[in-house]
Write a protein that binds this DNA or RNA. Sequence first.
DNA 1: TAGTTTTAAGTTTTT
DNA 2: CTTAAAACTA
Length: 740
Amino acid sequence: MQLDYPSYLEPLNSEQRRAVLHTGKPLLILAGAGSGKTRVITTKIAWLIREQGMDPRSILAVTFTNKAAKEMIQRARQIEERAGDAMLRTFHSFGAWFLRRNGSIAGLDSGFVIYDDDDVVSLLSSIMENTSRPDIRFYANSISRAKDYFLGPDDPGLGIINHHKKFRDIYKRYEERLAQIGNVDFGDLIKKPVEILRSHPEVTQRFRDRFSVIMVDEYQDANVAQFHLLKELCGPSTYVCVVGDDDQSIYRFRGAEVKNILEFPDRFSGADIIRLEQNYRSTSSILKAASSVVDKNKGRLGKTLFAEKGDGSNPELVSLFNQDEEASFCADKIENSVKKKETTWSDWAILYRTNAQSSVFETLFSRRRIPYNVVGSLEFYKREEIKDALALLSFLVNQRDEVAFRRAVNKPARGIGIVTVHKIIETSITSGENLLEISRKLKLSQKARTGLNEFIKLIEDGQALLDGQIIHQTESKKQKLKSGKGLSVCVDMLINNSGLAKHYKMQDEISGNSKIDNLQQLLNNVKDYPNTREGLLEFLENINLDRTLAEEQKDAKEAVTLITLHNTKGLEFKRVIMTGLEQGTFPREDKKGSELEEERRLFYVGATRAMDELYLTTCKQRFMWGRYENRTPSLFLLEVDKSVLKGKLDGGSRQAAFPMGRQFPKSFNPFNLANNELEERSGWRVGQRIFHDNHGYGAVTEIKDSDDGPLVRVRFENGHDKRFLSEFQGRAYEKIGDDY
DNA sequence: TAGTTTTAAGTTTTT
DNA sequence: CTTAAAACTA
C-alpha cells in the first residue's frame, strides 16, 4: 500500500503528524505531559531536512537544559543523520555563541568569561561596601531578574523588580564595572544579543537569512528577554514553532513568563494552535493523581489529557519514620524488584526537592552496593579548591577580571593582604590599565612585592604555555609537561606552581578531605580541550553553561537515577519515587499564592515522569539543623485524589534502631585489644574494615607516628589510598564489621 | 598578615 | 549538621 507520508511518520497520531507537517504560519503546540512533544520536534527537524530539502544549518532549535538539547539532537539523528548539523542549543548557549561573534559591535571582547551568581555577588560586594551578605544577594538577584525582564538601569519600569531608591544606582554601577572588566553575566547572554539585533539591522538580516526555521521547546519557561530575542530573530519569512505546557512551568522564580504562551497568537499574528492531549507515558491512575493536584491551581489554561495506557496500579503513599527509613524503603523496593527481574536499576528514579536530600540515598546505596547516578548536583563547582583553580584560569584569559584576581592572588597565602589588593584594583580602575600591568609597576612593601612577583610569574608562565612555549627549567618538569594532555598541561602547571596542590595536599592529610582528588578530576576534565587560549575559553564557557560537565563522568547506564524535581523535566522512568513530601520541604513552608501554585506544577511534573508505578513518601521526622524535626505531611498528599491512591497517612510509628550514618555509638570500639602501643593510641588497627561516605569500603593498611599524632592509612576498594590523622577519626571514617 | 577559634546563620529550584 | 563571617591571637 502506498502511504501518502514517509514511513517514519507512521507511529505518530494524527495531531502529532499535523504538527510535523505544518508549514507557513507560526505554530503554537500546546503539549501535555507525556504527549510526545520531543518526538514531534525531532521528527519535524528530520522531515524538514529530508522532505523539504531544508539545509540543516538553517534550523535553530532551542531548549532550556543542556540535557534536553543533547537528547534531542541524538533522537533527531536517529531519524535523519544530517540533523546533527542543525543548531540545537539552550537559549543561553545560543546567546554566548552570538556574542563571541558579534559582541565586538557592542564593545565586548570575544574573550569574555561568563560570571555565575557567586561571581556577581563578589563583584557587587566591592561596589556595595559595608553591606551584609544577604543584602548583596538580594540586589544581585534583583539585577538578574531585571535582565530577565529586559530592563536596563535607566528603565522607568525598574521599580517593579526592586523599589529601593538606591537599586537603580547600584545596577548602573554594576553594569559599568562589568563593562570595564569585559565579562558578562547570565542575563547578558540574552539581553545583549537583543540590543545588538535592535540597533544593527544588518546583523539582524544576516541572522534571519541564516535561520529560516526556529523551534523553541519548553516555551512556558521562556522569560521576557528570551521572547524579545525570539522576536528579533524571526523575520517575515521565518517559520517559528514553539512547544509548551502551562502546567509544567516551574521556573517563574527566575523570570519565566507564562504570558509568553498565552500571548503567542497575538505576538505572532496568524498563529495556528495544535493541542497534543494524548498521553502515552503514564498509566491513567498516575495521570489522574498528578492532575488532581495541579487542578487545584487557579491560574491555568486547563486541559484535557487522555491516558493511552490502562489504569495500572494505583500510586502508593508510604509514611515513614525518618529520612533513613525513607532511604531504606527505596533501597528495599528497588532491590526486590531488580532481584525478581521485574526491572533493572535504570528503570528507577528517586526525586527530591533539594539537592541536599540526595546524600542520605547516596550513603545508603553505596553501602548496599546499589548503583546510582546523581544528576546535576552543583557540588563539584562550589568546592573551594575548584573555584581557586578556575579563578586562576579566568584571570589567565582576562587580566581585568577583579573577581578572579581577588580570589587567586593570595591563595595560598603569599603575603598580599586586602589593602594591597584593593590598591591594585583601584589603580587599575582609574588608570584603565589591566590588573597584571598595575601589579607589575605598583610600589609596594617588600613583603607584598615578593609575593606579587610570584603571582605575576605564575600568570606569565601560564600565558606562555597557552602560546605554545615550554618554559620550565628542569628536565623532569619539561618531560612531565610534554606527556600531559591538552589543557591539563597548563592547568597542572598552574595548580602546582601556584602552591595550591601542596596547600591542599597538606590539608587533606590533616582532615581526611579529598581536595587533591577533585583537582585531579579537574585535570581530567580539561584534557580534551586544546592547550590554547581558545581551548581555555571554550572550557570555561562549557562549564559555566553546563555545570554537570564538571562532575565525574561515571554515567554507568545501569543505575538508579537520583535527581531534583526541576531536573526531571523532559525525562521519563518506568518507576518513580517522589520523596520528602512534607510541609516545609515540598512545598516549602513559606510558599503561598502563586508560588504555591508553582510548587503544585512541580508536583505535576514529577508525578508525570512515571510510566508504570509511582510512590510518594513522607516522613514523620527529618534530620535538619542537627536535630530531628517533626514534620507534617505535604499539602499535596491531602489534595491528591484518594480514589487513585494506595496507602494512608498512618505508618512510620516504628522507631529506627540506629540512625543511619553512625551504626556504632561513638565510644564503641570492637578492637580494643590493640596489640601495640600505636594502635592503642590511635584507636585504629591494621586490617580494620571501614566505610567512608565519599570513598566507600576500605581497610586500614598502615598506622604510623607523625608530628601531629598517629597517621592512619586506608586503602579503598575503588583503588584510592587515603591518609588521615587518628584524632579526626569518626568524622568521616566509620568502623564496620571484622578485620580482613 | 595568617591562621585559629568562636559565633551565628541557614537550606530552595538553574541557565 | 554544615558553612560563613567575625573576633581573636601569634
